[in-house]
Nucleic acid binder design. Sequence first.
DNA 1: TAATTATATTACTATATAGTCATATTTTGA
DNA 2: TCAAAATATGACTATATAGTAATATAATTA
Lengths: 114, 114
Amino acid sequence: MKTLTNETLDQVAVFLKSMAETTRLKILRSLHDGEKTVSEIMEESEANQSNVSKHLALLTAAHIVTFRKNGTSVYYKISDPNITDICDTVCRSIAERIRQERVMLKNIQKGVAL
Amino acid sequence: MKTLTNETLDQVAVFLKSMAETTRLKILRSLHDGEKTVSEIMEESEANQSNVSKHLALLTAAHIVTFRKNGTSVYYKISDPNITDICDTVCRSIAERIRQERVMLKNIQKGVAL
DNA sequence: TAATTATATTACTATATAGTCATATTTTGA
DNA sequence: TCAAAATATGACTATATAGTAATATAATTA
């Protein structure tokens, strides 16, 4: 990481921004178990048609998902498997933080009990 | 990832947002080889004092960095080692994409040469 | 061909936030 | 105590973007 150029950091920022949004993460979660149509994604992500379409366009531009058309439907799927790794790492970090907060809370409670 | 609750996805989004910004990535790059003062970070990230302070406050709130005070200086360091993993994964993804674009470009050139 | 279904796009609003300048705060040393 | 140095904060501007409603486009079927 120390050696990354400014230009590369810009690309990293663009990539992370494309993931760093609740509705898009819901869409990605919905796509995690395979290809889905826009309608299916709408249901599972609980977002409206216009909104889902726009987020899918953004994720496509970011090379995170791809699509194929069939009839009037469009099937999207995750094309970048690294997404999952990144989510997992972030989750580990969050989980660890919560764990540490619990420890701190316990220590405070001990103090109060004395 | 498939099993993450909406609430957890919100936390993931907050975490990723805190990383997904060029100046903050520059700051993290600068902190990668150890503790630095705000002044040192300013130089290495090429951002002004006010701006760096604000980004450091944000990174602190996100539990990504911590600080200690000594004299009039404040020393910041990365407290969440997962940052590096995430950057590395994103970089792998970007590198892979560039590699594939090169292949596609070559194929196009072959086509033109025929 | 007209109607229907699925999706994309455009225009708009509201909100968030990065950057900057000026100012405040804190610590140190003369 | 006063001045200087380091950092933080507040006010402001400009820009980006998420959400939404309305409309456009494309494929299918009656």
